[in-house]
Write a protein that binds this DNA or RNA. Structure first.
Length: 459
RNA sequence: GUGGUCGUAGCUCAGUUGGUUAGAGCGAUAGAUUGUGGAUCUAUAGGUCGUGGGUUCGAGCCCCAUCUUCCACCCCA
């Protein structure tokens, strides 16, 4: 027999981990609801046609595809009529589409767009939804990078108001405040980036420009410029970009400089105006974490059109733990044009890693059980069953040890499960009409009437 | 997808230039304590050395392949 194992990049969660994960989910959910967002769920599987082409070429490669059921090779050769070889390396792409038509969801935003289009007549707009579910990516695993991980998304669709952006920033601030993680929130705007591309004369190469700029902090100016050249930008464009990237000034001066730099770009000006409005509104809410205008922030997903934002821990290096932005026409791909949405996604697994690294989990989360009845044998258990029911009716989570094991073993069970109270009701106690209540933390033990248990154990 | 890295008991790790029967700490189990958890002491169990090939008289150690881990790219939460 071989050792059992799980696929690369996936994980099991023990009770200790689940309690902590649930704490994160509960905190996030509570704040989402505080802002009026409602829950939905969508299937793990989507039609491949829903997913393909939404995340760029890289994204398509990272999709988990599900092999069709049955004899999926039947009639394959006929699909390549010109004597073309179905199983040659060149036809892999075409072959793939013939044998798989479903895939695991890659994120929650695209399924959400599909959901909105499909259910448009049942929904009230602006539609504010949240969704906490796993997503799958066929990426190569690393620290903080898994093949199955949970995202916690909030989106509002059907409203172009920048108030939504401001509120989302507020949600970010409150979530991380509640979890005890100190973060920096970086924002930018796709329109500003488009404006820059215009201003440096590289309008058609927005993605090339932004993905290279995004790496400035990591690889330095020289490498960025090299990359821009190798991506096919003209030397003049690169020179203008270099001038922009070398600019040094404060957050307050940045918009001033850009207003000048983007004076000929209508789009750029619009972006600056949006940025100013969003930051002003967000700051009016009294943020506890810093909000920074970061010109280099790009974000890969192509469907963003306005504000984009990304959040990272200030104490643990693990990449971004939350990100999102505005997309003006995501539903367009599913046949409903002109609906604007904005949303963000919290990476629950990375948040978990950050909290674990910083020891931020409250200590008292180890056990849900409050009291354990010791099992002294069949006769005694009869009594315990009734007392336990009464405790449970009062909302106190209670266990009866299932086997008449050695007392030492039962005590140890309580200790390990971090159960704060143990109730001993043996033959002697029951005969005298009381039970013995032991407080595990101090070891002290008192005798009391079973009727008083509820009062003593109420938290 | 590209390049590198790791794998020995449940966990963390030792293991000499390739040499007989692979070790430690923690943990587990049992007892010291016949109705009382954490500390102490004692004993016990637990390994086809990731897997499959190869080299060798002989492989945990060398070679190849493969899987896994972690890391850097790519990309991203």
């Amino acid at each position: 027999m071989t050792r059992p194992s799980i696929p690369k990049g996936t994980r099991d969660f023990t009770p200790a981990e689940m309690v902590r994960r649930n704490y994160i989910f509960a905190t996030i959910r509570k704040i989402f609801e505080l802002f009026g967002y409602q829950p939905i769920e969508t299937p793990a599987l989507e039609n491949l046609s829903t997913l393909l082409g939404k995340y760029g070429e890289e994204g398509d490669k990272l999709l988990f595809k599900i092999l069709n059921s049955g004899n999926y090779l039947e009639g394959i050769q006929n699909a390549f009529p010109d004597g073309e070889e179905a199983f040659s390396p060149a036809s892999v792409k075409a072959l793939t589409l013939l044998i798989t038509e479903k895939g695991l969801r890659y994120d929650l935003t695209v399924p959400f767009a599909r959901f909105v289009v499909q259910h448009q007549h049942e929904l009230t707009f602006p539609f504010k939804r949240y969704q906490i579910q796993p997503v799958w990516r066929a990426d190569r695993p690393q620290k903080g990078r898994y093949r199955e991980f949970f995202q916690c998304d909030v989106d509002v669709i059907g409203s172009s108001s920048l108030l939504n952006e401001a509120e989302l920033i507020q949600i970010i601030d409150q979530v991380f405040l509640a979890l005890g993680i100190s973060v920096s929130i970086r924002v930018n705007n796709r329109k500003i980036l488009s404006g820059i591309a215009e201003a440096v004369g590289a309008s058609g190469q927005l993605t090339d420009l932004t993905t290279a700029m995004d790496k400035l902090d990591k690889v330095g100016l020289e490498k960025v410029l090299e990359e821009l050249l190798s991506r096919g930008l003209s030397p003049e464009s690169v020179e203008k970009t270099a001038a922009l990237l070398q600019w040094q000034g404060s957050q307050e001066e940045l918009p001033v400089m850009l207003t000048e730099f983007l004076r000929d770009s209508v789009t750029g000006q619009k972006g600056l105006q949006e940025m100013a409005e969003v930051t002003e509104m967000a700051k009016a809410c009294g943020l506890k974490n810093p909000l920074l205008f970061d010109l280099k922030l790009a974000r890969g997903l192509n469907y963003y059109t306005g504000t984009i934002l990304e959040v990272s821990s200030r104490d643990v290096e693990i990449g971004s733990i939350c990100g999102g932005g505005r997309y003006d026409d995501l539903t367009g791909i599913f046949g409903w044009e002109g609906v604007s949405g904005v949303g963000i996604s919290f990476g629950a697994d990375r948040i978990f890693d950050v909290m674990a690294a910083l020891n931020l989990f409250p200590e008292e989360m180890a056990s849900a059980t409050r009291a354990l009845f010791i099992n002294f044998g069949e006769k005694e258990v009869r009594h315990c069953i009734q007392w336990a029911s009464r405790l449970r009716d009062a909302g106190i989570s209670t266990e009866i040890y299932p086997d008449p094991a050695k007392l030492k073993k039962q005590m140890e069970y309580a200790h390990r499960k971090n159960i704060p109270y143990v109730i001993l009701a043996g033959e002697d106690e029951i005969r005298s009409g009381f039970v013995s209540l032991k407080k595990m933390k101090t070891g002290e033990q008192i005798n009391l009437s079973p009727d008083l248990l509820t009062d003593h154990l109420r938290p």
